[in-house]
């Protein structure tokens, strides 16, 4: 790729940060060249962010009607999924899945709760709470 072909499609998701690509200067030498963004990459990133936001919203809706515990919502909200959370907790997936049961979740010991909170980067109080349900809005916050 030549230097002048390096895409410069700035997008708000990058918050003004740039990246570096190796592109050819006029002598054909590859040198580091800043890029603001590329459409293909931006779309893929937004898609991944949207997917996990949707999973979080879905879990939030179910948590509000008592079908799941706040843990599932916070898991997605903190961009984890079940295998990742289980691995981070050092437990089996079925052990973590049991805590998606609101009743079992409410009975968690303080130690367990702190462990979940630490892995998720939340405080133990935040872990127990749910934000109000948002209106059906396809865009994430």
């Amino acid at each position: 790729m030549k230097k002048d072909a390096v895409p410069q499609q700035a997008d708000a998701i990058y918050e003004g940060e740039t990246k570096v690509l190796y592109a050819q200067d006029s002598d054909g030498k590859l040198t580091p060249t800043p890029t603001q963004g590329w459409e293909a990459e931006i779309d893929a990133l937004k898609q991944a962010v949207d997917e996990i936001a949707q999973l979080a919203q879905d879990a939030l809706a179910r948590a509000h009607v008592g079908e799941t515990s706040p843990l599932e919502y916070h898991m997605y909200q903190q961009r984890l999924d079940l295998p990742m959370l289980a691995q981070a907790m050092g437990r089996f997936q079925w052990q973590v899945r049991r805590h998606f049961d609101p009743k079992r979740f409410a009975r968690l010991s303080d130690r367990q709760r702190e462990r979940y909170a630490r892995v998720l980067g939340l405080s133990p109080d935040e872990l127990m709470q749910l934000p109000p349900l948002k209106d059906k809005d396809p865009t994430h916050d």
Binding site: K19, V20, L21, Y22, P32, W38, A40, E41, D43, A44, L45, Q47, A48
Partner: peptide, 13 residues
């Protein structure tokens, strides 16, 4: 989309 992210986004030059 995941292919694109693995190839381009994760800082590959």
């Amino acid at each position: 989309g995941h292919i694109v992210r693995m190839q381009e986004e994760i800082g590959t030059g």
